[in-house]
């Protein structure tokens, strides 16, 4: 691997730029056998893990980008690099035309970071106390703090939580309070690692709607990772998929469907338990006269499909819908193995 010089910063017009970024880790290998233990004492075995390999991408200001990939693909590593928690092995990183490593303090006053499995709230204090602590530490002007507090209280519906101790919040409430706290200093970019992890349907909806709103109305650039692909599709306009430390796909969700063969779901409702036979289609389920097929529109056009269905007697209803993105992604992940 070639070691490229790390530069202080390279000003770009983009919110986020990664150029040829590589990040490797060393993993110690342990052998439980007696011989292995002795060998480890003398010469421990090491394995180099390439978390990111020559990754390049740009994100424009105001974009809402989903960052997806299987477990261990390098998603959290990327977010840690962008927020200055880790140094790249080589390559250049620019966030708001600043180097996350060399200009950490300046950047942190304009960046918001939230890891879904961690909290920035003070455990043994009411939520509002954590907010006031943030106001002092981030040196947020009183007027900005008041305006943002009012905004997040209303949009995230946390008015009833402000006096509650962080330790007494449910997971969904805690996530909303953490999101609110992250936005108090008006960050221009926010990095979210699994923000919907473990949330129930209601909490998830509130979080997604809120993120869409601040992206649409305030132009906040958002980069979000999640394993819930339906959530990602609903939130983001663009998806960056990473696999084995490399960017495997960069584009919109429809384009992603295209690379897996334009799979589509067709639900046909029939009378008298009749099951129609469709060419190039797989029957996924059949219950009470409702039959779901998976069909590749690259092989069978909509026109041909409709003509075929019209030839059957007893067809009452036809519904055509996109294949769930979860299935598309699963198919993509499988093809990478």
């Amino acid at each position: 691997m070639s070691e490229k010089a790390l530069t202080d910063t390279f000003p770009t017009g983009f919110a986020v730029s990664l150029h040829n970024v590589t990040k490797s880790f060393i993993q110690w290998q342990r052998d439980n056998s007696g011989k292995g233990i002795l060998r480890n004492l003398i010469k421990p075995e090491k394995k180099v893990i390439l978390a990111l390999s020559d990754v390049t991408f740009d994100i424009r200001q105001g974009e809402f980008v989903a960052y997806a990939g299987p477990n261990g693909a390098g998603k959290s590593t990327t977010l840690k690099l962008l927020s200055g928690m880790l140094l790249p092995t080589s390559g250049e990183i620019s966030v708001l035309s600043m180097s996350p490593q060399k200009q950490r303090r300046e950047l942190m006053s304009r960046l918001g970071v939230l890891f879904g499995n961690r909290t920035e709230l003070w455990w043994d204090h009411p939520v509002i106390q954590s907010f006031e602590w943030k106001k002092v530490v981030w040196n947020i002007p009183e007027s900005v703090y008041r305006r943002n507090l009012e905004m997040v209280t209303e949009l995230l519906d946390i008015g009833g939580l402000l006096k509650t101790f962080a330790r007494e919040l449910s997971l969904g409430q805690r996530m909303r309070a953490d999101l609110a706290m992250m936005l108090l200093h008006s960050p221009e970019i926010i990095l979210l690692d699994e923000p919907t992890l473990g949330l129930d349907v209601v909490a998830k909806r509130q979080t997604i709607e809120f993120l869409k709103k601040i992206n649409r109305e305030d132009g906040v650039t958002i980069i979000v990772t999640s394993h819930d692909m339906d959530d990602l599709e609903e939130m983001a306009q663009r998806i960056l998929m990473i696999s084995g430390g490399k960017i495997a796909y960069d584009g919109d969700f429809d384009g992603l469907r295209g690379i897996t063969g334009n799979l589509t779901r067709v639900v046909v409702t029939t009378e008298n338990g009749f099951v129609p036979k469709l060419k190039n289609a797989a029957l996924l389920s059949s219950e009470n006269g409702v039959h779901e097929f998976e069909i590749d529109l690259a092989k069978t056009s909509i026109k041909a499909l409709m003509r075929l269905l019209s030839e059957f007697d007893g067809v009452c209803d036809v519904e055509i819908k996109k294949a769930p993105i979860e299935q598309v992604i699963a198919s993509v992940y499988s093809s990478w193995k």
């Binding site: 927020s83 928690m85 303090r105 300046e106 942190m108 960046l111 961690r118 981030w138 040196n139």
Partner: peptide, 9 residues
């Protein structure tokens, strides 16, 4: 990492 994300030395 909690300290790294604060805009303070």
């Amino acid at each position: 990492e909690h300290l790294f994300i604060q805009p303070l030395p």
